[in-house]
Design a binder for these strands. Structure first.
Lengths: 365, 365
DNA sequence: TTATAGCATGAAAGCGCTGTCAATGCCGCG
DNA sequence: CGCGGCATTGACAGCGCTTTCATGCTATAA
């Protein structure tokens, strides 16, 4: 027996339901239901009366009951590892752009980069009977995989490409992107190329592997050139990690940052220490967030197709949900990446000037 | 009749339900339901059998049916105007921190600064029978207000304080914050203080009013000192708006930015043009996002208690939902703000040096 | 042994909606 | 005048779960 809810004023109150609207409008409940879902199926007159009753009673449809009865929830389940990360802003925007106009709600849960939380989030979304799922990355736990596979709904894994997709997989090779960024700096003539990373999740790790492979392929050791932390990635952390590298390798020539926040931190730290960018140090970020183009100097970054990725996922899912349920012909889509070259990178200078400057230590405020 | 769902392999499939688990475990459905919700109410032996059956069948509880039957959804409805905005990152984190451990799910919908979308979002969340609502700001549409008031659930309006709260209101005076930021610059001796704003929502508008009042109170005209746009707020936009101001008022001494992104854009534009900060221009941002402290020079900003605000809201709501439903004694809470002074602001210099530098125009690539 | 809790379990009803199918009324046409 | 067909509306069952109340069982006391 549902407990009687009490209103703000303490009087027992009850939400209006379909039958309340029905009796007020002088029709049956089914007709109200129809009027709300397919207005063209009821007569002009009845529709007007129902609309009025709905307004007067402040009726709000009970999606729970509706979903239970129709086994259609119009819910799309989305799990992202972070809301902080600028990357997911475009990603979520794309999903909203694609799903909302089609009458679907996008339900976003945050796993905070924890596979266990992701598992819980997936279970929750399936429990709410999402009609499709979009998860970030390819590193779900075994139970997560089982749940998704057993759910019978279409699933898209994004951000990264894997060998063993659960269902549909749209992304790019994080390893190759890290490799290419490093290769780009190598091609500029740099040798002492550092890498910094924070909150090392699976994708960051693979970018780092790309860096390591590129360096190894070029025959360059990376000792002392890598600084990483599991802590959250912030602008401040970028400055800190870069400082760590400088401590050990004062003559570092270039740096590939795991993401743009870190790159921005490095840029600020350079300004603080009087290290010229790109004169003394070339900086490459990752993701190409909005501010990269506006920084001074503008930051070179690896652009990832995060809007397209999500939009493509949405299109495919809509096709499956609304179409006959036919599987798409292609279930593994590589969207690639692009290095956007800007002012923060330049060819290695034969005779580095003012290298001494970087020894100068300026207090951070 | 629910359509038969087809599995990936094309075979008809059906999700396991309570009764499936029950028959597999050799008990009744009620017992399974109890075992899942209050394990201590069933015997050790039965619990084990049920757990096994759940695992074998990959059973996931149907929250829809569960919520419908119990009229408890454990859902907290949250509407924010933006996910892009760094402000809401801390805000949402606070909500998750508070609600998740208590067994509640936080359902976040984005209104994209549109009152109409907010209205839709509120209706959606109420339709899903959220047990409490948290909305940003005090400028809901009339229908939104009616829906919330008629819902019978506790509602918190955050971010800003109003005269006519729907229910509970936790925030700060945006007007006063804008006033104080401007007053701060005035006290440093500046007169030509500009203000830039983007995506002018209600709160940004009131910050601007605070600025205008402070300037008027100081007897300073603001003609040509304000640049604003309804477009989205970005770092680039900050640079653009600042450039507009410079065009008309080359000898501007200080600038109060509607948010930190714009402030960062101004800082970069200054670097680009060779305008010294704070030597030639003092900059004040708003919100005190993480990067403010790490920029060079570090940005002075108005810190808003966004984590506390949300956390406080969550505490109060949990009290109401789980406690007897008693209303809190205080329903209007002012959390204030704080000006965090850093390197981007300095007293006005008697004889401005190198003022000419700002005329120098450097292409933004 | 019988009465009396007290615990573990089950049966039945119903949460608010929608799918299905039947019923009704109205029109035009033969 | 009667019939088929269309448009509109309603009755009924049931989605999968929880709540309530009833029941059987064991342990303890009389």
């Amino acid at each position: 027996m549902p407990r009687r809810k009490l209103g703000r004023n303490g009087k027992p109150r009850r939400r209006a339901r379909l039958s309340d609207v029905a009796s007020r409008a002088g029709v049956s409940a089914v007709t109200v239901s129809r009027a709300l879902r397919k207005p063209e199926m009821v007569s002009e007159d009845v529709r007007r009366r129902i609309d009025a009753a709905v307004r007067e009673l402040g009726y709000v449809r009970n999606y729970l009951a509706s979903a239970l009865a129709s086994s259609r929830t119009h819910l799309i389940g989305v799990v992202v590892p972070s809301l902080t990360n600028g990357v997911f802003v475009d990603y979520l925007r794309a999903l909203h752009d694609a799903f909302l106009p089609q009458g679907f709600q996008v339900l976003v849960l945050n796993s905070r980069y924890s596979p266990e939380e992701e598992e819980r989030a997936i279970a929750t979304l399936l429990g709410h009977h999402a009609e499709a799922m979009i998860v970030a990355g390819i590193d779900q736990t075994e139970r997560s995989r089982r749940l998704l596979e057993g759910s019978g709904i279409p699933v898209v894994q994004t951000m990264e490409l894997g060998d063993r997709p659960i269902d549909i997989n749209i992304g790019l090779s994080q390893h190759d992107a890290g490799f290419a960024a490093t290769r780009f700096l190598l091609d500029l003539g740099h040798r002492k190329i550092a890498h910094i990373a924070a909150r090392i999740d699976f994708r960051a790790r693979r970018r780092m592997e790309g860096y390591l492979h590129a360096m190894a392929a070029a025959g360059i050791g990376t000792e002392n050139l890598v600084a990483a932390t599991v802590q959250q990635s912030t602008v401040r952390r970028g400055a800190q990690l870069f400082s760590e590298v400088l401590e050990k390798v004062p003559d570092v020539e270039a740096i590939f940052c795991c993401n743009d926040d870190l790159a921005l931190g490095v840029l600020f730290e350079c300004q603080r220490r009087g290290i010229r960018v790109p004169g003394d140090l070339s900086i490459v970020g990752f993701n190409d967030l909005e501010y990269c183009a506006s920084a001074y100097p503008a930051l070179t970054s690896v652009a990832t197709p995060r809007y397209d990725m999500a939009h493509r996922a949405a299109e495919i899912l809509l096709e499956i949900i609304r179409g006959s349920g036919a599987r798409p012909k292609q279930t593994r889509i590589d969207l690639g990446f692009e290095i956007v070259v800007r002012g923060s990178t330049a060819p290695r200078r034969p005779e580095p000037l003012a290298r001494a400057a970087r020894a100068k230590r300026v207090a951070v405020e």
